[in-house]
């Protein structure tokens, strides 16, 4: 194993750096500007059972050290993702990819995951439970331990690949939800998804985002993410993928010390499309600076 390699749910990654879903498309457009095979892996654009356009624009608002997005899971639906997007991805990315899945009903998650589980290039299923449950009064699956566990059980029943549950930070007790997912059979936990935020335009005196609210991400949320990764990784035995405002190689080390086995990079890709490449190339330097021989040895080491 290399100095930067880590093992995520039985699959070895050359390094722990993973572009987060929704910030990297299906990879092939980034492959035009650098060789994306240098990544640990990447999590592709959130996929749903049916095609979605998403929310009206404006979908983006700037914040101090971050941004709010309300894209609304725009994607062509699982059938088209498998038929059109994954073949294009396969031409430029030769590692196992993480398939990110969203749904608005338990059955939707199971349907989409079952399809993607059969794709050879998919290594992990990352199940985003932050979406509203249309059969549960619109409450997000990820805000209730029972609802999150129900999604995990339904997905595990129809899949064979590792299931990583991506948790929302917009909850009172993230540990209870993580533990419920673990008990329901989840193979890993990834966190944090974006935090609910809002901006108001002083000129129009209206919300900046057409959808009023959206997901806040970027360096501003990094301390919250580190705290939640620390809490969850100390409460569960399954691996944790840390994310939330990670922008530098130093941030990667900090996340791993908090307990992350691998680290996703989101908003940073949108500001600098070369962000993940730069982080990976900078990791050996910061490892040496902080006298770290092997990244896998520092996981949860704080």
């Amino acid at each position: 194993m290399g100095k930067m390699s880590v093992n995520l749910c039985g699959i070895e990654l050359d390094n722990p750096v993973i572009p987060a879903s929704g910030t990297f498309g299906y990879g092939y457009e980034f492959a035009e500007i650098y060789d994306i095979n240098l990544l640990g892996t990447f999590s592709f654009k959130g996929t749903t059972k049916d095609p979605r356009f998403g929310n009206p624009t404006p979908r983006i608002a700037e914040c101090t050290a971050g941004m709010i997005n309300a894209v609304g899971l725009q994607n062509p639906g699982v059938e088209k993702v498998i038929a059109e997007e994954l073949p294009k991805m396969r031409k430029v990315f030769h590692k196992k990819v993480m398939a990110n899945v969203s749904g608005f009903a338990v059955a939707d998650y199971a349907y989409t995951c079952e399809k993607l589980d059969k794709c050879e290039e998919v290594g992990w299923l990352e199940v985003n439970v932050s979406c509203p449950n249309v059969h549960g009064g619109g409450m997000s699956f990820g805000t209730s331990p029972e609802a999150a566990a129900e999604v995990v059980r339904a997905v595990k029943a129809v899949t064979t690949k590792p299931v990583i549950v991506k948790l929302s930070p917009n909850v009172t007790d993230i540990v209870a939800i993580a533990k419920a997912c673990e008990e329901a059979g989840a193979d890993g936990i990834s966190l944090i998804n974006t935090m609910l935020g809002m901006r108001i335009d002083l000129k129009t005196k209206k919300p900046v985002i057409a959808n009023t609210m959206g997901g806040f991400s970027g360096p501003a949320i990094f301390p919250v993410a580190v705290r939640m990764v620390y809490q969850v990784s100390h409460a569960v035995k399954i691996p944790v993928v840390g994310m939330g405002g990670v922008s530098t190689a130093e941030d990667v080390l900090e996340m791993m010390l908090a307990g992350a086995t691998a680290v996703e990079v989101g908003a940073a890709n949108l500001v600098d499309p070369f962000a993940c490449k730069k982080i990976i190339e900078d990791l050996p330097r910061v490892m040496e600076k902080y006298k770290i021989n092997s990244l896998s040895e520092i996981i949860g080491g704080c």
């Binding site: 457009e29 980034f30 356009f53 404006p58 979908r59 983006i60 941004m67 894209v71």
Partner: peptide
Amino acid sequence: ERMGCGSGACMGCSCKTVTGY
């Protein structure tokens, strides 16, 4: 349109057209 990344990654500036999104 108000953009996030400006390079196609975030889908922040999508619109509907006759030939798709």
